[in-house]
Design a protein around this nucleic acid. Structure first.
Lengths: 260, 260
DNA sequence: AAAGTTCTGGTCGACAAGACCCTAACCTGC
DNA sequence: GCAGGTTAGGGTCTTGTCGACCAGAACTTT
């Protein structure tokens, strides 16, 4: 709520402090940070930028910037993503947290809203920009502390990983990691890398193709890798990738639902 | 991130706008709103307050207020909850979203961070305060539009409901709805009301008591209701209520996990 | 041609979840 | 005190899902 119920300066209830006067609100800076995740070399990577100014000069950080007064938070995140990568992919942007500890920025009071973006390999994009101040780093290096980040960005990245693991289960975000067409092995690698699990290839195939609207065979086949092997079928994402995955809370038939 | 990599006023990359100067950031008001949910008369209710001032004077709204510069967002939410209900229950406070559309408050640019709080029946607390400006209303009345809310609070409540449904599955938030001791029928009613489903009493019992650390029998029995019936055992919440419920993503044995 | 690698389909068993039954323990009303 | 109603608690059976494992297909390199 924006103002409490009583007049300004008057305690609204017994024992509680007086309201703030809405015309004299405490000002904050509001920023939007975007954790950009992608698969690279079979593991999960994040796009980080190197800070050119104090504080935390020279350290790695999540890309982000100030929210502008005329835009929504989602628009600000979309703009920041486009500025960093050139990718216009609003559908893959998910807000997952707000951070406002008083001492998180030593200069001033900053509240930041964090977004998660999942892209297919952005290696070429990153290489195209100034390679000195943007790089893909394995998230494991961030989580273990091998690379340490500016501000409270470690906490934000941790929360982002947590979120993408949940998203992977309840939405079809997995296809965002792979290209327009993909093999089931590629898709399975996404689940295995994000969840850090080992999945049986045959069972995975069955689960995915059984759920209809998820993957659509293209009829074409992928070229086998250097090691040879039978060529895999190429699939593309279906239309049901945002309606919940093969692993769901409710039973398949939905018989437990009573109304709406 | 708080500042981009390049110097102020200098485009950081080809084709992207110049950075904002961090010393001339656009100021925002930051508020914290708390959606307080509770079970009342077998259905899900929310605590709303009636606005005493313009804009939206006289309409229902979520309780909330300005974040203070020296407190964290979590502390601000905890303070707002205490001011409204007198309850000190930080463990049940969950942040679930930030809202910053430019036109969401007609007076000024306000970014609000929304929290979800789950309490056992607060009817007595609400009655103790000025009943004219705070009330428990069924969430169904809010969602159907029977009661309409100030600002974008309808959207916030909708998101809160969405969130509590997920929380109910992955955490032990269900016990927050009931008292310190409870019958399994009471607990089951929480799931049924929040998820809007019908659960078999026998199967529910088995699932809950099989998972250890969830409910602990007290040995005592509840008094049957007015209609009679066999008296139910009283349970209290175990210690595992925040480690994931009987319904989980990973199989019980956790055999699929490979490392950590 | 042989061996290796990967994909794809099949089968089997373990286990969880739901449907449905019956009994136990209390109430109210007569 | 007894009959009938109501709710709790326990048992069983069926069904479906998921993982483990095996075998064949299709391609590679040597």
């Amino acid at each position: 709520m924006e103002t409490k119920t009583s007049g300004a300066g008057v305690p609204s209830r017994a024992g509680v402090p007086a309201d703030y006067d809405p015309s004299r609100f405490p000002p904050f800076a509001v920023t939007v940070d975007v954790v950009i995740l992608t698969m690279s070399e079979g593991t999960l990577h994040a796009l980080l930028v190197r800070r050119g100014e104090a504080p935390f000069q020279g350290m790695w950080a999540i890309p982000g910037g100030f929210k502008r007064p005329a835009e929504t938070l989602d628009e600000a995140a979309k703009r920041e993503l486009a500025e960093e990568t050139g990718v216009d992919a609003a559908s893959l942007l998910t807000q997952f947290g707000a951070y406002g500890d008083p001492e998180r920025d030593p200069r001033m009071n900053v509240v930041t809203v964090a977004y998660l973006a999942v892209l297919r390999d952005v290696g070429a994009i990153v290489a195209g920009t100034d390679a000195a101040d943007a790089a893909l780093v394995p998230v494991s290096d961030v989580l273990t502390g091998t690379i340490d980040l500016a501000f409270d960005h470690l906490r934000i990245v941790r929360d982002a990983i947590q979120r993408v693991r949940v998203e992977l289960e309840v939405t079809g975000i997995a296809t965002a990691f792979v290209g327009a067409t993909f093999t089931l092995a590629e898709l399975r690698a996404v689940y295995e890398a994000v969840w850090n699990v080992q999945l049986d290839a045959a069972n995975f195939r069955r689960s995915v193709v059984a759920e209809d609207g998820w993957v659509i065979p293209t009829g074409r086949r992928a070229r086998p890798g250097a090691a040879g092997g039978r060529p895999a079928e190429l699939y593309r994402a279906g239309r049901a990738w945002n309606h919940g995955g093969p692993i769901r809370r409710l039973p398949r038939n939905g018989k437990r639902e009573v109304q709406a």
